[in-house]
Design a protein around this nucleic acid. Sequence first.
DNA 1: GCCCAGGAGTGCA
DNA 2: TGCACTCATGGG
Length: 273
Amino acid sequence: MKFDFNAEYFNPEHVLECGQIFRFKPFKQGYFVCSADKACYVHSDGVKTVVESEDSDYFYNYFDLARDYSQIVNRAKERGVPLLTRSSEAYKGLRLLNQNHEETLYSFIISQNNNIPRIKGIISRICGGLGEKREFLGEQYCTFPSTPELAAAGSGFFRSAGCGYRDVFLAETSAKIAAEGISHLENLNTPQLKAELLKYKGIGGKVADCIALFGFGKRDSFPVDTWSEKIYKEDFDGTLKDRTKITEYFQSLFGEDSGYFQQYLFYGKRSNL
DNA sequence: GCCCAGGAGTGCA
DNA sequence: TGCACTCATGGG
């Protein structure tokens, strides 16, 4: 099955390269993208962006296609912040993904104090070791392991996959979720969800914000990492040092647009816009 | 060899 | 509460 969408506000490169997703690779004329136990092929000619998969409904929601991003970009430009104006114009094809809860949670535990290429490698090895092998469009891929499979693997597996000291975080948190489930995380507001996420080993403020934003659709989240800190100092003349307070500063400034604007800024800053 | 990466846990004052 | 220290690992 395939469907297409206006490419102006759906650019595969912008969506995938902005740091919210770690399981994708160049494929044919676009990208091969994996999410949970599914895969799709997304490509664009600049006019139409096409998504091919075995589950159109899943990927229509995954790419957040029910939302009008032209209004978000317009609101970003109205802020009068030079970096935000440049970034939202240059990357107006960026969209926030609606990712799987558990894949997002484990992936961002791995992301702490780590760089994106290495994060991709680690997650790829975890999926290769524990996931189910499948094929789509003649391309082999592996599903993201279930929580019970991760919990059964133990810290030794995570260490061998290259997780480093994060091995025990993944082992403990997957065991806790295997025992308790995560259904209690649904239908919470953003502060409530963040407070619950902070109870897991390996999840601090920044990672909780990323999980809330990318895995639970909490668009009023504003993750603050080393890049956001740099943006705060250089582009907002900020003087606060506490990352929690920097997060609160941006949330009070951007409100319900926090998550979108954070991604424009993050991607723009990393791209040296 | 050093510094950095989408940071967080721990110990100590 | 605040702050310094430490934690694997690979790239530049």
